[in-house]
Simulated assay, not measured.
Amino acid sequence: MDGRWIPYCGEAPGPDAWLSRWNLDPVLGTGLVLLALALWRLSAARAATPRQLRCLRCAWTLTGLLYVSPLCALSSAFFTVRVIHHIALVLAIAPLVAIGLERWLRCLPTPLWACTAIASVTFWTWHAPAPYAAALSSVALYALMQLTLLASATAFWVAVRRSGAVAATGAILATTVLMGLLGALITFAARPLYAPHFASTLSWGVSPLQDQQLAGIVMWAPGSMAYLAAAMWIGWRWMRAERARGLRTEPA
């Protein structure tokens, strides 16, 4: 891998080494331990509901999986794995945090369409070639990329949960379209766009363009479908509630 592109997760591994590449960063490890202690304190003090604790524990576990396990190193090799990381961040960890910390986040102003726009712009910005390359050449920028993706997505899901069903569904569908459009642009690009992966996939027998196309498809299909599933879930719950309300108001 080009010496310029040694990101937070380390130099891109080959197929014979990636399973041994665990991230033992003491800063990350200390942070995870402190978060685990905070979760234990919340549980002991009964300061959160069982559902909130489950969500926070799942978010903690996913964070460890993404940033401690060999998947972290693999994301240095493949843009596809990096995209999977980011989709997990905005579509799994962020909503889990939004539910788990709902009690503490309720005082924050979260206008739905502003949060939708900020989350989408943040996601698009970090997947533009130049900002992405900058983030993979600087630990500080890499941390900024991860934190802004998580924070903007968490604010989005908080806003969705506070909004009515119609507005929430509309915001999610708008995000679905934007995610799919970005994925399509990446998939159909005629040449490799992401300099940190121009050579990182070659030892795996994969060209950078093939890796990029697969990453775009992952963003376009599973990523968009996950948002669409959330919109359908909200719509289904709304229709069920409306039906129950109608049954209650029917004359005997």
Rank of each mutant, 00 (worst) to 15 (best):
W5L: 07
I6Y: 02
A12M: 15
G14N: 05
G14L: 01
W18Y: 15
L19E: 07
S20W: 10
R21L: 01
R21K: 04
W22F: 15
N23R: 10
N23F: 08
N23V: 11
P26G: 05
L35Y: 12
L35K: 04
A38L: 14
R41E: 12
A44H: 04
R46K: 12
A47N: 09
T49C: 13
C55D: 15
A59R: 01
P70E: 05
A77D: 07
R82K: 13
H86R: 08
L89C: 04
A92G: 09
I99P: 00
R106T: 04
T110H: 00
A117K: 02
S120D: 04
W124C: 03
A128E: 06
V158D: 00
V160R: 01
V160M: 09
S163M: 06
G164A: 10
G164H: 06
A167E: 15
G170K: 02
L178H: 04
L181K: 12
L185E: 08
I186T: 02
T187W: 03
T187A: 08
S200N: 13
L202A: 13
W204R: 02
G205Q: 08
Q213C: 12
L214P: 01
W220N: 08
G223C: 05
G223V: 08
S224I: 03
M225E: 02
Y227Q: 10
A229N: 14
A230W: 00
A231R: 11
R240I: 04
A244V: 13
R248Y: 10
